[in-house]
Design a protein around this nucleic acid. Structure first.
Lengths: 255, 255
DNA sequence: ACTATTCTCGTACTGCGTACGAGAATAGTG
DNA sequence: CACTATTCTCGTACGCAGTACGAGAATAGT
């Protein structure tokens, strides 16, 4: 009933029922059971599908049509299953999203190619993350709701922590730096994607430009008027990313 | 039919129907009509409610119970209206969210208190934004889907652009800096809120800690093990924010 | 008084996440 | 070899979401 076919021992049913659950209403999933325990039970019917296949189908759907296209019904039909069968592999949709995030994290190279200069290494990591998020544009959105890092995410974290070792920062600070860096990349890529999408619909962009011009013309927005009048050169997202990243990383100190 | 009671002239119906709409499927709303045109038509029934009141109710709901509590039905009943009546004031829910964002942006001080040092001013602006987002924890989430800045948002942007004037950056670069700064603050506050929420449910946090400890004990995650073993001092969110903000702003250059 | 216009909102449709439980498949037991 | 306990599958159904539709109420110009 609670194990969605992936569990280790088999005596925690009592515990889980007995737990009065904090009181907050969110029952949630025990991460230990979710990530470490895909052992097949000895009794009962053999599973027709696999968590792997389901997650991959969900990722393919999100890549092709965006996160909103990922519904339990569509993922299931993509895999040839009934909608409710998914619940044998993930207890709810939010967990499926977590599985998706960790699944694509498996694409991140985990090789330890440190150069000796930790700033260089950190920047390389950020560039990897950016490319990764551009390949899976739903990632920044999905990331903001994530709860617990899965094995692939942890492998990448391991790499990042290794890169940060020469800084001499303590544990909490190293984690914080990595979290901030990831947050920065996610924010930037989200912005980048939004702008790309805006450029893809010209009428919409034109309407927005007309609106801003109208506001600027009202006399109460001199700064905006000036900015619109003298925009300067266009600024590629790539260059902007690199600039801000360099500022952030070069500003990091070991004090 | 298209005017949701807020329109200026009254001859754009033909235009709007005639538009074949890019092709992308998202009809969207003309920002000019949305933000600059709340003139009451001369004919017809007088509106019972107001966009202002509806938006305020939605904001109150989001503040109290989070963004998920903001449903058309609940907002409507909060205001004493039928659910469908909201559509006379906003064409769809996404637009209502935009109205909410701009509504709370009205709380941001718009006074021009520049000190003469633009770095100091920029940091002050970021601190304002952080406090603002902490007061309305749904803002980081809502912000990521926003399309067009409303009047209050523009007023604040005006102030930020003024603060950036002494940098000598061109228009596009100034806009970019502000966007990045806002993105950074939003990302940080989202992280901050998530951690606060995690601290509020101790069993969940304990389960996560147990899971991470188990991973660290497997021998394949030496960096994680070390970090968990020697966490260092706790790091208040406030201090972390200030540190990263200072790095970001001090690293800004006028080249 | 009449008519054109605008606002209100009950009804209803589609699609979502998922609770429930009946049936099918499997593995250990006598 | 049944028999039984367990596990997986998935049709049905419930509640809730956003919102299209259209009938009726209110208002302003004629």
């Amino acid at each position: 009933m609670d194990g969605f076919h992936t569990r280790g021992s088999g005596k925690e049913r009592k515990t889980e029922i007995g737990t009065p659950d904090g009181g907050s209403g969110a029952t949630s999933v025990d991460p230990q059971e979710l990530w470490l325990g895909p052992t097949r039970p000895r009794r009962g019917r053999r599973p027709t599908f696999s968590r792997e296949a389901i997650t991959a189908a969900a990722v393919a759907l999100a890549d092709a049509e965006g996160l909103d296209a990922v519904t339990m019904r569509r993922v299931a039909s993509q895999v040839g299953a009934g909608a409710m069968s998914l619940y044998s592999y993930a207890p709810d949709k939010e967990t499926l999203l977590e599985l998706m995030v960790d699944h694509v994290s498996g694409e991140l190279p985990t090789a330890d190619d440190r150069t000796g200069d930790w700033r260089t290494d950190l920047k390389a990591i950020a560039h990897l993350q950016r490319a990764h998020m551009l390949r899976h544009p739903w990632l920044p959105t999905a990331l903001s709701a994530r709860r617990t890092p899965g094995p692939n995410t942890l492998a990448f974290l391991e790499r990042a922590l290794a890169a940060l070792r020469p800084t001499g920062l303590d544990g909490a600070a190293r984690l914080e730096v990595f979290a901030q860096l990831t947050g920065f990349v996610a924010g930037h890529v989200a912005h980048e994607i939004a702008q790309t999408a805006a450029a893809r619909s010209p009428d919409r962009a034109a309407a927005e430009a007309r609106y801003l011009a109208a506001v600027a013309a009202d006399g109460h927005h001199p700064e905006l008027a000036e900015v619109l009048a003298a925009p300067g050169r266009p600024l590629t997202p790539e260059a902007t990313f690199t600039r801000f990243l360099n500022r952030l990383v070069d500003g990091l100190d070991t004090d």
